[in-house]
Design a binder for these strands. Structure first.
Lengths: 164, 164
DNA sequence: CTGCATGCAAAAAATTTGCATGAGG
DNA sequence: CCTCATGCAAATTTTTTGCATGCAG
Protein backbone atom coordinates (compact mmCIF):
# COMPACT_ATOMS: atom_id res chain seq x y z
CA UNK A 1 0.00 0.00 0.00
CA UNK A 2 0.99 3.60 -0.71
CA UNK A 3 3.03 2.67 -3.80
CA UNK A 4 0.21 3.41 -6.26
CA UNK A 5 1.64 5.16 -9.30
CA UNK A 6 -0.48 8.26 -8.63
CA UNK A 7 -3.58 8.63 -6.50
CA UNK A 8 -6.37 10.80 -7.85
CA UNK A 9 -6.09 13.46 -5.16
CA UNK A 10 -2.47 14.13 -6.11
CA UNK A 11 -3.42 15.75 -9.40
CA UNK A 12 -6.36 17.64 -7.93
CA UNK A 13 -4.22 19.03 -5.14
CA UNK A 14 -1.43 20.02 -7.53
CA UNK A 15 -3.94 21.68 -9.80
CA UNK A 16 -5.49 23.64 -6.95
CA UNK A 17 -2.13 24.75 -5.62
CA UNK A 18 -0.96 25.79 -9.08
CA UNK A 19 -4.17 27.68 -9.74
CA UNK A 20 -3.81 29.52 -6.45
CA UNK A 21 -0.12 30.25 -6.85
CA UNK A 22 0.87 27.98 -3.99
CA UNK A 23 3.56 25.32 -3.84
CA UNK A 24 3.58 21.56 -3.77
CA UNK A 25 5.74 20.78 -0.80
CA UNK A 26 6.92 17.57 0.80
CA UNK A 27 4.79 18.32 3.86
CA UNK A 28 1.62 19.01 1.91
CA UNK A 29 2.01 15.78 0.01
CA UNK A 30 2.70 13.83 3.19
CA UNK A 31 -0.26 15.34 5.04
CA UNK A 32 -2.61 14.82 2.11
CA UNK A 33 -1.48 11.23 1.80
CA UNK A 34 -2.01 10.60 5.50
CA UNK A 35 -5.42 12.20 5.27
CA UNK A 36 -6.61 10.21 2.26
CA UNK A 37 -5.17 7.03 3.70
CA UNK A 38 -6.75 7.52 7.10
CA UNK A 39 -10.00 5.73 7.72
CA UNK A 40 -13.02 7.25 9.41
CA UNK A 41 -13.32 10.90 10.32
CA UNK A 42 -10.01 11.94 11.86
CA UNK A 43 -9.48 15.22 13.64
CA UNK A 44 -6.26 17.21 13.46
CA UNK A 45 -4.77 15.53 16.47
CA UNK A 46 -5.36 12.05 15.11
CA UNK A 47 -3.93 13.03 11.75
CA UNK A 48 -0.96 14.70 13.37
CA UNK A 49 -0.24 11.59 15.38
CA UNK A 50 -0.38 9.28 12.40
CA UNK A 51 1.69 11.65 10.28
CA UNK A 52 4.32 11.94 12.97
CA UNK A 53 5.07 8.24 12.67
CA UNK A 54 6.43 8.74 9.16
CA UNK A 55 7.46 12.37 9.34
CA UNK A 56 8.57 13.17 12.87
CA UNK A 57 9.35 16.81 12.28
CA UNK A 58 6.18 18.01 10.59
CA UNK A 59 4.56 20.62 12.84
CA UNK A 60 0.98 20.54 14.02
CA UNK A 61 0.46 24.04 12.63
CA UNK A 62 1.31 22.74 9.18
CA UNK A 63 -1.33 20.06 9.55
CA UNK A 64 -3.89 22.71 10.42
CA UNK A 65 -2.76 24.89 7.53
CA UNK A 66 -2.79 22.04 5.04
CA UNK A 67 -6.21 20.72 6.05
CA UNK A 68 -7.51 24.22 5.53
CA UNK A 69 -6.10 24.10 2.01
CA UNK A 70 -7.68 20.71 1.40
CA UNK A 71 -11.02 22.10 2.50
CA UNK A 72 -10.65 25.18 0.30
CA UNK A 73 -9.72 23.03 -2.65
CA UNK A 74 -12.81 20.92 -2.13
CA UNK A 75 -10.82 17.77 -1.41
CA UNK A 76 -11.74 17.60 2.26
CA UNK A 77 -14.86 18.37 4.20
CA UNK A 78 -14.97 19.42 7.86
CA UNK A 79 -17.67 18.44 10.32
CA UNK A 80 -18.30 18.66 14.02
CA UNK A 81 -19.89 15.72 15.73
CA UNK A 82 -20.00 17.08 19.23
CA UNK A 83 -16.68 16.09 20.75
CA UNK A 84 -15.30 19.60 20.47
CA UNK A 85 -12.96 18.90 17.59
CA UNK A 86 -13.33 19.42 13.87
CA UNK A 87 -13.24 16.16 11.95
CA UNK A 88 -12.42 15.76 8.30
CA UNK A 89 -13.29 13.37 5.55
CA UNK A 90 -12.49 13.13 1.87
CA UNK A 91 -15.05 15.15 -0.06
CA UNK A 92 -16.97 13.84 -3.01
CA UNK A 93 -18.42 16.88 -4.73
CA UNK A 94 -21.45 15.18 -6.29
CA UNK A 95 -22.17 12.58 -3.63
CA UNK A 96 -22.90 14.50 -0.49
CA UNK A 97 -23.78 12.43 2.52
CA UNK A 98 -24.84 13.03 6.09
CA UNK A 99 -23.99 11.33 9.37
CA UNK A 100 -25.49 9.19 12.04
CA UNK A 101 -23.45 9.28 15.25
CA UNK A 102 -23.70 6.88 18.16
CA UNK A 103 -23.65 8.91 21.37
CA UNK A 104 -22.31 5.89 23.22
CA UNK A 105 -19.42 4.70 21.11
CA UNK A 106 -18.98 7.69 18.77
CA UNK A 107 -19.18 5.36 15.81
CA UNK A 108 -20.16 7.28 12.68
CA UNK A 109 -22.35 5.91 9.92
CA UNK A 110 -22.66 7.78 6.63
CA UNK A 111 -25.88 7.91 4.72
CA UNK A 112 -27.34 9.66 1.75
CA UNK A 113 -30.99 10.44 1.19
CA UNK A 114 -32.01 12.17 -1.99
CA UNK A 115 -35.42 13.03 -0.64
CA UNK A 116 -33.86 14.97 2.21
CA UNK A 117 -31.48 16.69 -0.17
CA UNK A 118 -34.42 17.69 -2.31
CA UNK A 119 -36.43 18.94 0.67
CA UNK A 120 -33.50 21.04 1.80
CA UNK A 121 -33.38 22.81 -1.55
CA UNK A 122 -37.12 23.29 -1.40
CA UNK A 123 -37.01 24.77 2.08
CA UNK A 124 -34.14 27.08 1.24
CA UNK A 125 -35.92 28.25 -1.88
CA UNK A 126 -39.06 28.95 0.11
CA UNK A 127 -36.99 31.26 2.30
CA UNK A 128 -35.24 32.78 -0.73
CA UNK A 129 -31.88 31.26 0.14
CA UNK A 130 -29.46 29.77 -2.32
CA UNK A 131 -27.93 26.73 -0.62
CA UNK A 132 -24.14 26.70 -0.44
CA UNK A 133 -23.81 23.80 1.95
CA UNK A 134 -25.66 21.90 4.59
CA UNK A 135 -24.95 19.53 7.41
CA UNK A 136 -27.18 17.05 9.09
CA UNK A 137 -26.18 14.88 12.01
CA UNK A 138 -28.48 12.40 13.65
CA UNK A 139 -27.40 11.43 17.15
CA UNK A 140 -28.60 8.10 18.43
CA UNK A 141 -27.82 4.83 20.10
CA UNK A 142 -27.45 1.44 18.53
CA UNK A 143 -30.49 -0.68 19.36
CA UNK A 144 -28.61 -3.92 19.07
CA UNK A 145 -25.15 -5.15 19.95
CA UNK A 146 -23.46 -3.34 17.06
CA UNK A 147 -22.31 -0.59 19.36
CA UNK A 148 -19.05 -1.79 20.90
CA UNK A 149 -19.06 0.55 23.87
CA UNK A 150 -22.69 0.18 24.70
CA UNK A 151 -23.50 1.47 28.15
CA UNK A 152 -26.50 1.92 30.40
CA UNK A 153 -29.52 3.42 28.62
CA UNK A 154 -29.34 6.69 30.56
CA UNK A 155 -27.43 9.90 29.88
CA UNK A 156 -28.25 9.84 26.21
CA UNK A 157 -28.49 13.44 25.22
CA UNK A 158 -26.58 14.55 22.18
CA UNK A 159 -23.05 15.66 22.96
CA UNK A 160 -23.08 19.21 21.63
CA UNK A 161 -20.67 21.57 23.32
CA UNK A 162 -19.14 18.74 25.29
CA UNK A 163 -15.51 18.04 25.85
CA UNK A 164 -14.21 14.59 26.83
CA UNK B 1 -41.67 43.84 30.59
CA UNK B 2 -40.14 41.44 33.12
CA UNK B 3 -42.89 42.08 35.68
CA UNK B 4 -44.97 39.08 34.56
CA UNK B 5 -46.30 37.35 37.63
CA UNK B 6 -44.44 34.16 36.77
CA UNK B 7 -43.00 33.08 33.42
CA UNK B 8 -43.41 29.41 32.47
CA UNK B 9 -39.70 28.61 32.61
CA UNK B 10 -39.54 29.68 36.24
CA UNK B 11 -41.53 26.68 37.44
CA UNK B 12 -39.80 24.25 35.12
CA UNK B 13 -36.39 25.43 36.25
CA UNK B 14 -37.35 25.26 39.93
CA UNK B 15 -38.75 21.79 39.40
CA UNK B 16 -35.59 20.59 37.68
CA UNK B 17 -33.34 22.06 40.34
CA UNK B 18 -35.44 20.57 43.14
CA UNK B 19 -35.52 17.17 41.46
CA UNK B 20 -31.73 17.26 41.09
CA UNK B 21 -31.06 18.53 44.57
CA UNK B 22 -29.76 21.88 43.37
CA UNK B 23 -30.62 25.37 44.53
CA UNK B 24 -32.58 28.24 43.08
CA UNK B 25 -30.17 31.12 43.36
CA UNK B 26 -30.40 34.76 42.46
CA UNK B 27 -27.83 34.23 39.70
CA UNK B 28 -29.60 31.27 38.16
CA UNK B 29 -32.84 33.19 38.04
CA UNK B 30 -31.14 36.23 36.56
CA UNK B 31 -29.31 34.22 33.91
CA UNK B 32 -32.41 32.23 32.98
CA UNK B 33 -34.41 35.42 32.70
CA UNK B 34 -31.79 37.02 30.47
CA UNK B 35 -31.70 33.90 28.35
CA UNK B 36 -35.44 33.62 27.85
CA UNK B 37 -35.73 37.33 27.25
CA UNK B 38 -32.92 37.41 24.73
CA UNK B 39 -33.91 37.28 21.08
CA UNK B 40 -32.21 35.15 18.48
CA UNK B 41 -29.52 32.59 19.22
CA UNK B 42 -27.15 34.16 21.71
CA UNK B 43 -23.82 32.65 22.66
CA UNK B 44 -22.35 32.81 26.15
CA UNK B 45 -20.52 36.02 25.50
CA UNK B 46 -23.61 37.81 24.25
CA UNK B 47 -25.63 36.55 27.20
CA UNK B 48 -22.90 37.49 29.64
CA UNK B 49 -22.78 41.00 28.21
CA UNK B 50 -26.50 41.51 28.45
CA UNK B 51 -26.66 40.04 31.95
CA UNK B 52 -23.83 42.25 33.11
CA UNK B 53 -25.94 45.32 32.47
CA UNK B 54 -28.35 44.35 35.24
CA UNK B 55 -26.07 42.22 37.40
CA UNK B 56 -22.54 43.58 37.15
CA UNK B 57 -20.94 41.03 39.39
CA UNK B 58 -22.20 37.76 37.93
CA UNK B 59 -19.20 35.83 36.65
CA UNK B 60 -18.88 34.38 33.17
CA UNK B 61 -18.23 30.94 34.63
CA UNK B 62 -21.63 31.07 36.27
CA UNK B 63 -23.22 31.81 32.92
CA UNK B 64 -21.49 28.76 31.45
CA UNK B 65 -22.53 26.64 34.41
CA UNK B 66 -26.12 27.82 34.33
CA UNK B 67 -26.56 27.37 30.59
CA UNK B 68 -25.34 23.83 31.05
CA UNK B 69 -28.08 23.34 33.63
CA UNK B 70 -30.67 24.82 31.31
CA UNK B 71 -29.58 22.39 28.61
CA UNK B 72 -29.67 19.45 30.98
CA UNK B 73 -33.11 20.42 32.16
CA UNK B 74 -34.34 20.56 28.58
CA UNK B 75 -35.11 24.28 28.75
CA UNK B 76 -32.32 25.31 26.40
CA UNK B 77 -30.84 23.80 23.31
CA UNK B 78 -27.27 24.34 22.09
CA UNK B 79 -26.24 24.57 18.46
CA UNK B 80 -23.17 25.47 16.49
CA UNK B 81 -23.59 27.49 13.35
CA UNK B 82 -19.99 27.73 12.32
CA UNK B 83 -18.69 30.83 14.07
CA UNK B 84 -16.80 28.82 16.66
CA UNK B 85 -19.17 29.51 19.52
CA UNK B 86 -22.03 27.49 20.95
CA UNK B 87 -25.33 29.28 20.59
CA UNK B 88 -28.43 28.64 22.64
CA UNK B 89 -32.14 28.92 22.14
CA UNK B 90 -35.19 28.12 24.25
CA UNK B 91 -36.12 24.50 23.70
CA UNK B 92 -39.57 23.36 22.81
CA UNK B 93 -39.62 19.63 23.45
CA UNK B 94 -42.35 18.72 20.97
CA UNK B 95 -41.67 21.30 18.28
CA UNK B 96 -38.16 20.65 17.10
CA UNK B 97 -36.92 22.89 14.32
CA UNK B 98 -33.83 23.22 12.20
CA UNK B 99 -31.89 26.20 10.92
CA UNK B 100 -31.06 28.05 7.77
CA UNK B 101 -28.02 30.27 8.17
CA UNK B 102 -26.92 33.04 5.84
CA UNK B 103 -23.18 32.76 5.34
CA UNK B 104 -23.01 36.46 4.54
CA UNK B 105 -24.92 38.10 7.35
CA UNK B 106 -25.19 35.20 9.81
CA UNK B 107 -28.91 35.72 9.98
CA UNK B 108 -30.65 32.57 11.19
CA UNK B 109 -34.04 31.37 10.01
CA UNK B 110 -35.82 28.56 11.81
CA UNK B 111 -37.87 26.02 9.97
CA UNK B 112 -39.64 22.80 10.64
CA UNK B 113 -40.31 20.05 8.15
CA UNK B 114 -42.18 16.99 9.27
CA UNK B 115 -41.19 15.02 6.22
CA UNK B 116 -37.52 15.49 7.06
CA UNK B 117 -38.19 14.55 10.68
CA UNK B 118 -39.91 11.41 9.50
CA UNK B 119 -37.13 10.52 7.07
CA UNK B 120 -34.56 10.92 9.82
CA UNK B 121 -36.38 8.39 11.97
CA UNK B 122 -36.63 6.09 8.99
CA UNK B 123 -32.93 6.34 8.21
CA UNK B 124 -31.93 5.81 11.82
CA UNK B 125 -34.19 2.79 12.07
CA UNK B 126 -32.69 1.33 8.90
CA UNK B 127 -29.30 1.52 10.60
CA UNK B 128 -30.70 0.17 13.85
CA UNK B 129 -30.25 3.42 15.72
CA UNK B 130 -32.67 4.93 18.16
CA UNK B 131 -32.61 8.70 17.59
CA UNK B 132 -31.84 10.79 20.65
CA UNK B 133 -31.35 14.06 18.85
CA UNK B 134 -30.48 15.54 15.51
CA UNK B 135 -29.29 18.76 14.02
CA UNK B 136 -29.60 20.09 10.54
CA UNK B 137 -28.16 23.35 9.36
CA UNK B 138 -28.52 24.63 5.82
CA UNK B 139 -25.96 27.28 4.91
CA UNK B 140 -26.88 29.62 2.13
CA UNK B 141 -27.10 33.16 0.85
CA UNK B 142 -30.14 35.34 0.50
CA UNK B 143 -31.10 35.63 -3.14
CA UNK B 144 -32.75 38.97 -2.69
CA UNK B 145 -32.09 42.07 -0.66
CA UNK B 146 -33.23 40.51 2.63
CA UNK B 147 -29.65 39.92 3.69
CA UNK B 148 -28.49 43.14 5.32
CA UNK B 149 -24.78 42.51 5.01
CA UNK B 150 -24.91 41.15 1.50
CA UNK B 151 -21.48 41.09 -0.07
CA UNK B 152 -19.82 40.00 -3.30
CA UNK B 153 -20.99 36.55 -4.49
CA UNK B 154 -17.58 34.94 -3.88
CA UNK B 155 -16.15 33.24 -0.80
CA UNK B 156 -19.35 31.43 -0.04
CA UNK B 157 -18.25 28.16 1.49
CA UNK B 158 -19.86 27.17 4.73
CA UNK B 159 -18.03 28.47 7.75
CA UNK B 160 -17.29 25.27 9.62
CA UNK B 161 -14.18 25.33 11.76
CA UNK B 162 -13.80 29.06 11.25
CA UNK B 163 -13.10 31.67 13.87
CA UNK B 164 -13.78 35.38 13.30
C1' DC C 1 17.26 34.05 -6.01
C1' DT C 2 12.82 35.31 -4.12
C1' DG C 3 8.81 34.66 -1.99
C1' DC C 4 5.83 31.21 -0.17
C1' DA C 5 6.16 27.40 3.44
C1' DT C 6 7.52 25.49 7.76
C1' DG C 7 8.56 24.70 12.72
C1' DC C 8 8.38 26.38 16.97
C1' DA C 9 6.49 28.77 20.41
C1' DA C 10 3.53 32.22 21.82
C1' DA C 11 -1.15 34.07 21.28
C1' DA C 12 -6.10 33.67 20.91
C1' DA C 13 -10.51 32.08 21.81
C1' DA C 14 -13.88 29.17 24.11
C1' DT C 15 -14.74 26.65 27.89
C1' DT C 16 -13.66 24.28 32.32
C1' DT C 17 -11.94 23.91 36.92
C1' DG C 18 -9.78 24.84 41.70
C1' DC C 19 -10.40 27.18 45.66
C1' DA C 20 -11.72 30.33 49.25
C1' DT C 21 -15.80 32.71 50.37
C1' DG C 22 -20.91 33.39 50.22
C1' DA C 23 -25.68 32.10 50.82
C1' DG C 24 -29.86 28.91 50.06
C1' DG C 25 -32.89 25.66 52.51
C1' DC D 1 -25.32 25.02 59.79
C1' DC D 2 -23.94 22.52 56.11
C1' DT D 3 -23.73 22.00 51.56
C1' DC D 4 -24.00 23.66 47.29
C1' DA D 5 -23.04 27.93 44.47
C1' DT D 6 -20.29 31.75 43.05
C1' DG D 7 -16.46 34.77 41.60
C1' DC D 8 -12.09 35.03 40.29
C1' DA D 9 -8.20 33.50 38.23
C1' DA D 10 -5.68 29.90 36.51
C1' DA D 11 -5.83 25.86 33.67
C1' DT D 12 -7.33 23.26 29.46
C1' DT D 13 -8.29 22.57 24.81
C1' DT D 14 -8.48 23.70 20.12
C1' DT D 15 -6.93 26.56 16.64
C1' DT D 16 -4.32 30.61 14.85
C1' DT D 17 -0.36 33.53 14.20
C1' DG D 18 4.40 35.78 14.35
C1' DC D 19 8.84 35.20 13.08
C1' DA D 20 13.30 33.47 11.70
C1' DT D 21 14.79 30.09 8.60
C1' DG D 22 14.10 26.72 4.73
C1' DC D 23 13.10 25.26 0.21
C1' DA D 24 10.21 25.11 -4.23
C1' DG D 25 10.05 27.01 -8.65
Amino acid sequence: MSNDSSPPWEAKLAEYLARTGLRVTRQRRAIAEAFFTHSGHPNIDELYTSIRAQHPHIGQATVYRTLKLLVESGLAEPSRFGDGTTRYEAADADEHHDHLVCVDCSHIVEFRNDEIERLQEEIAAAHRFRVTDHKMVIYGVCTDAQCPRRRSPSSQRHPDSRRP
